[in-house]
Computed example of a mutant assay.
Amino acid sequence: MKLSNEDICAHMADGKIAFEPPPTEDQIGAMSVDLQLGNAFRVFLPGKASHVDLAPPGGLKGEDIEALMGHVDVADGEPFYLHPGEFALGITVQRVRIWEGLAGRLDGRSSLARLGLMVHATAHTIDPGWDGRITLEFFNCGPLPLALRPGMRICAISFEALMTPSTKPYALSPTSKYKEQLAPLPSRISTEGAAE
């Protein structure tokens, strides 16, 4: 069952949902909270590899995946340009913490989607027990370049109550690949099956 704005505010008051920095009143909608775009991006570097092998035994190692992506930091007020057909990782301004009895769902904004911006390729579920900033998986499926600016409202998070709290919260799992992330992290698929 989805939480309403009243439920979200009650859970923020009792510490079951936390945002740093906290949202303003106009960021809280009927059943979601708008999140803002941070300053850090990751982009694939051209010419670094002929392909990415997604499965062992030939799959890339973690350091190889890291080397495929460059860092781009954008100053406040400056644009990050996402050209048609391009993919990039971004990050939210807000750090989000979710109690083990809730799951989050990330959604793009309809007004931005109508211009061709996708904000998550597939990863829209925020696990119970999450603690960190949220990496955004941008893709421009429109015909024109899009200028993304740090601080803009980029997506919204809503929450669903679980029937019982999870006994495997994300933040406590030894195999959680992205816990406490504060910057956009590239894929850590090479660590699957190994504790971090």
Rank of each mutant, 00 (worst) to 15 (best):
L3K: 03
E6K: 07
C9I: 15
C9T: 15
M12I: 03
D14C: 01
I17K: 01
T24D: 13
E25N: 04
A30F: 07
A30P: 06
S32D: 08
L35N: 01
R42D: 09
G47A: 03
S50I: 08
L54C: 14
L54I: 03
P56G: 12
G58I: 11
G58S: 15
L60A: 11
K61Q: 06
K61S: 03
A75Y: 11
H83W: 15
P84T: 08
A88N: 06
G90Y: 00
Q94E: 14
R97F: 00
W99F: 12
E100A: 05
G104K: 02
R105K: 07
G108Q: 04
R109I: 03
A113R: 15
L117F: 04
M118F: 14
V119N: 07
A121C: 06
A123V: 04
H124N: 10
D127N: 03
G129H: 06
G129M: 01
G129K: 02
I134H: 06
E137S: 02
P143L: 13
P145E: 01
A147C: 04
R149G: 02
T167E: 14
L172D: 12
L172P: 15
Q181Y: 01
L182C: 14
P184E: 03
L185N: 07
T191A: 13
T191F: 04
A195S: 15
A195V: 12
